[in-house]
């Protein structure tokens, strides 16, 4: 039975929620404001609405130049894009056949393989950071994009295998049975039936891999020492140094870097939880 009458309790709850949302969003609004507010603040505070608006910080951000006069931001943005793209491509291409095998084929060691991929995903990449650092040092791949892509692939591949496997599991088996009866070989089934049908799943996996690589901070910061090789997260962090912090610059950088991934996140957020908990439950 619906209460049409004005319910005080309900109104209070709505109000409380609005306040809560405002509190939660306050930091974000602060950052946006600081991106447009003139002056080099030493901390993040104050009202969330800017009094004066300027594009100075953005100009500082885009206009920063390196030792040879080149535009740093463009370079660093390009680094981020290239590295994230490369990681995504490597991750998806290498994992898709293995994900299919783990999903559909029966072979000794399948259960062990599944457990391995699950367990590997649960451990932090930072644990492997040290041995990878030592190895890349020996190979001379420190401070190089190839090296960082290899490092990112270390986490990207297990993630892609696991997610794609979950997706392949959801495709109906009868299609493959029909194809087998039609005379298709396993490779043909994979290429002509499974892959076209798995396009949404592959897109989601690729997008997640891209976002993860784009947002990665600590390994990029540790492995890249040249300013021209920095990725965007490293750039942003460097504007908030130990002793001096340019919050305006930080805010401008944060806004520019976050917007693409936030858009992608909102597009994907429904599949995020499903994939995570399903994977964890299925084990």
């Amino acid at each position: 039975m619906k209460r049409r009458a004005f319910n005080v309790r309900h109104a209070l709850v709505h109000a409380a929620l609005i306040v809560l949302v405002a509190v939660v969003l306050y930091p974000v609004m602060l950052v946006c404001k600081k991106a447009f507010e003139p002056g080099h603040a030493t901390s993040l505070g104050g009202s969330p609405l800017p009094e004066h608006v300027t594009t100075q910080h953005f100009r500082d951000l885009f206009g920063a130049r390196g030792p040879h006069g080149e535009l740093l931001f463009l370079r660093q943005a390009a680094n981020s894009i290239i590295i994230a793209l490369a990681t995504t491509v490597v991750g998806v291409v290498i994992s898709c056949t293995a994900a299919y095998a783990l999903s559909r084929l029966r072979f000794p060691g399948r259960k062990a393989g599944l457990t391995t991929f699950l367990v590997v995903q649960m451990f932090p990449a930072t644990l492997l950071m040290l041995p990878l650092y030592v190895i890349l040092d020996k190979l001379g791949l420190l401070n190089s994009m190839v090296g960082l892509v290899l490092v990112y692939s270390t986490t990207a591949i297990p993630f892609c295998v696991w997610t794609l496997k979950g997706y392949f599991d959801s495709l109906p088996r009868e299609l493959e049975e029909a194809a087998r009866i039609d005379g298709a070989s396993p490779w043909m089934i994979f290429r002509r039936i499974i892959l076209p049908l798995a396009r949404p799943g592959i897109a989601v996996t690729a997008l997640f891999s891209f976002m993860t690589a784009w947002n990665e901070f600590i390994m990029a910061s540790t492995f890249m020492t040249d300013e021209s090789k920095y990725t965007l997260p490293v750039l942003i962090q460097s504007s908030v140094g130990q002793f001096s912090a340019d919050w305006g610059l930080f805010a401008a950088g944060a806004v520019v870097t976050s917007i693409p991934v936030m858009v992608a996140f909102y597009v994907l957020q429904r599949s995020l939880v499903g994939g995570l908990t399903a994977g964890a439950v299925k084990g």
Binding site: P172, E174, L175, E177, A178, A179, I181, I193, P196, L197
Partner: peptide, 13 residues
């Protein structure tokens, strides 16, 4: 051989 499935199993794409 050829088989007709209960759920048709047509290739959707």
């Amino acid at each position: 051989i050829a088989m007709v499935f209960q759920s048709y199993a047509l290739y959707p794409h």
